[in-house]
Structures are given as C-alpha cells and as structure tokens.
Design a protein around this nucleic acid. Structure first.
Lengths: 160, 160
DNA sequence: AGTATAGTCGACTGAAATGTTCAAGTATTG
DNA sequence: CAATACTTGAACATTTCAGTCGACTATACT
C-alpha cells in the first residue's frame, strides 16, 4: 500500500463526489473547478475508479459520475488501490528467495506493518469521512488515538 | 505523510541496524548485503537519518552506524519523515486560500485522515517491530485490528 | 608515518512516476 | 443535427527513485 499525492487527489475527488451526488451525476469539470485538480488528470483517475467498479459513469448531457456502491462500502483503501494499481513488489514478491533466516525476519516485520496500515485504511469509509462535522471528527480522532496507544502498550507488554 | 518504497528501504535498514547494534557499530556494507539495498543508496538514506539525529556514525575501521536513541524512542513515522523530507504541501499549504466553504471542508476531511495515519505510524516504534516473535506479532495485529474496528464503530455511531 | 577501513559529500545518471495538455473520438439528450 | 460529457490515447515537462562514481576525511592498526 503506497500513499502518494495521487491517492490524495483521488480521495479528495471522491469526497467531493460523495457530498454532491444527491443532485444527480457529478461532472468532472465541476470537481476540477472546486478541488483545483486538472480535468485531464481527473479523467485518468476516474477511468481507473470506474474500471474498479467504485464509480459509474452517465454519458451525455446531464451526465457525469456517481458512486457505484453506497458510501459505507467504499473504503479509503479501495480508492487508493484503484488508482495506485501496481501494489506489487514487496521487494521480495512474497514467495521469492528469502535467502537467509535474517532476510525473512525483516521481511516479515515489514509486511506485518504494511498489513496493519492496509487494515486501518480499509476501516475508514467514505461515509466516515463525509458524515462528520468538524468538532466531532476531531474528538473521534483523539479517542481513536487513545485506543491505539492502549493497543500498542498491550503489544509491548506481550512481547516483553 | 507519504508512504513509498523509499520509506520501506529506510525502515527495513533500521530494523536490520536495531537487531545487530549490540555487536558494536553496524556497517552499511553489511546492511547492503543482507537487505539487498545498494550501498550508495543506503549512504543517502543514512545521511538523512543522521542529520535528523536518528542514527549516529562512527568513523574509521570497526566503525559504522548505531542508533542515536533507544529503540523505544524511534517511531516508524520518525524514520519516514527523515528520508521523505518534504512533508510539505497539503495541496493547500495549510493556511492558503481555501476559497469557498466547500474547499475548506474537503481539505479538513483529508488532513484529518492524514493526521490519523501519522499518529498511527508514530505509535509504532522500532522496539515494537524488533521484539516480536512471529506468532505474537500476528496475534497482536489481530487484536489491534479489533480495537480499530471498535473505534470506527464508535465513530460512526457518534456522527449518526 | 603509512595503510586499510569506513563514513561523508557532491554530482551525475537512466528509469519511472507525477501531473498537465492536446487531440480525436463516442454516447446521449434535446 | 448540435451540444454535452464521458472515453481514449498520445505527448510532454517535471520530479522522484535508485543507483553509480569519484574525491575526500577521520580513525585504527601496524
């Protein structure tokens, strides 16, 4: 799971789309103007999102894009995976020759961290992002952080 | 907070260093061979890590690198921030002209997610990554995942 | 003192990813 | 038919990635 500006653009555009789709299909031109992302770049991103069945297109006048599923069923991880297609090489391809014992260990440690990241992003949906007034969002973040710290402490305690 | 292969290389190298530093300074040549990362690329990465006071160097024969602080005080976020230096432009620089209400809103939503990501990575230390046998690491991951799901549900419930 | 070791620095490179722009389509509405 | 809007593809400048090279400095050992 990579995390680049490309993924950010996609997530930003999807938030805009999710917020406005009640008024029918949303045009890329509109998203482009509101979010200051080049129209052609959006076309590329939404081409990928469409091929991954995250959005659906409506052609012709009055057309645009709409979500292919409910907001609860679209996670941030889905969006990023769609535009960053080649999730590929974990430097070791998964089953490649993990030569010595040591190599395998660091490899496992890394993929484990990677997995946690993915699970976290998969747990945040468009619905979560859109349906949160500012104050509440901040409060929720803090409480989640507390839980994370708690989990980490458990982790350390277990391995000590 | 970006997450690229560059950061992975740095984290992998740091894990290798953390595991071996009890035997004195660790040479980049050794890390290069064990982790299959080009020596010159490691020099660039460790130059940044040194300038951020995450590692310290020992010159001359028998020299190499060692951690500048304890493993508990080095988080994954620290490592990634050191090598990915320009954490810069959130597309909006922070205080830039968030033109209309809408623009500000999606911007807030994104930075909030970004913040959560950072807090998560900051909560995982080198110590956590190194001192965990496989089986326990997996168990810990699962239990952490449960906590995350729980936290998210609370989140949704709060905003609904 | 001299030599081997090992980090330090800077410049430079080819390949890939980013992000943008231009151009030519096709499907749909009115 | 004309306007709208998605679709596709190519070309492009810029930046980042990852590696290479060469010259240099500091230290340990003989």
């Amino acid at each position: 799971m990579r995390l680049t500006t490309k993924g950010r653009f996609a997530v930003t555009a999807m938030i805009d789309l999710a917020q406005r789709q009640t008024g029918g299909p949303v045009t890329l031109a509109g998203i482009s103007e509101r979010q200051k992302i080049s129209l052609s770049y959006l076309e590329q991103l939404f081409g990928k999102l469409r091929r991954h069945c995250i959005v659906a297109s409506v052609r012709g006048p009055g057309g645009g894009y709409r979500l292919a599923r409910g907001m609860q069923e679209v996670s941030v991880a889905d969006i990023i995976a769609a535009v960053d297609e080649p999730l590929d090489a974990t430097n070791c391809g998964g089953r490649e020759n993990c030569q010595d014992e040591q190599r395998c260990m660091t490899h496992d440690l890394w993929t484990n961290l990677n997995k946690r990241m993915h699970e976290y992003l998969a747990s945040v949906t468009l619905h979560d992002l859109v349906n949160q007034p500012k104050a509440k969002a901040v409060a929720a973040t803090i409480s989640m952080d507390d839980r994370l710290r708690g989990a980490r402490r458990d982790n350390v305690a277990m391995s000590a």
